[in-house]
């Protein structure tokens, strides 16, 4: 893969990177920091890749690692009352936004990758370093939770 093709492939994955970061980090500045560092690492290791289809799970894995690094560093809580998470973006599906973010990470990330990123089970397994069978069972469980909570929300 040429450097130019790699550059363009990274830019084409902007929305994917945004969703992965959004699922992990509430603050905008943290998401920008995570993606910057992930891009730097991906660029340094770009020679690994020969075709664009392999880039997505690889980049997602690097990005998840960077998000985890930032989560570890953000161990401070400013102890003022009512520190609210930022509101969902205007163009987001508000109900589904909150439901997905409320999922535990082990369910949230497979749901994001399968249903938002269109990755297959093998790609998700590689990106999350879990067996493919575990991917499917977690997605199944996550979908059950989401559907049940979504139906409750519709009744209100």
């Amino acid at each position: 893969m040429t450097d130019e093709a790699f550059e363009q492939a990274l830019i084409n994955l902007t929305e994917t990177m945004y969703r992965v970061c959004y699922a992990q980090l509430r603050q905008k500045a943290d998401r920008e920091d995570a993606v910057q560092e992930a891009l730097k690492k991906a660029w340094e290791k770009r020679r690994l890749l020969r075709d664009e289809s392999a880039l997505k799970p690889w980049l997602v894995r690097i990005l998840i690692n960077e998000c985890h690094n930032i989560q570890r560093k953000n161990r401070r809580v400013i102890p003022t009352e009512d520190v609210m998470p930022p509101p969902p973006p205007e163009d987001a599906d508000g109900v589904m936004h909150d439901l997905i973010l409320a999922l535990p990470e082990k369910y949230r990330m497979p749901v994001l990758m399968i249903f938002m990123e269109g990755m297959n089970g093998t790609e998700v397994a590689r990106a999350l370093r879990i067996p493919p069978g575990t991917v499917h069972s977690r997605v199944h469980k996550a979908r059950q939770i989401l559907k049940s909570q979504w139906e409750e929300a519709q009744k209100e």
């Binding site: 990177m17 959004y22 163009d91 589904m96 749901v111 938002m116």
Partner: peptide, 8 residues
């Protein structure tokens, strides 16, 4: 679910 978080 792709629009759950909106666009970047």
């Amino acid at each position: 679910l792709s629009r759950a978080f909106g666009r970047a």
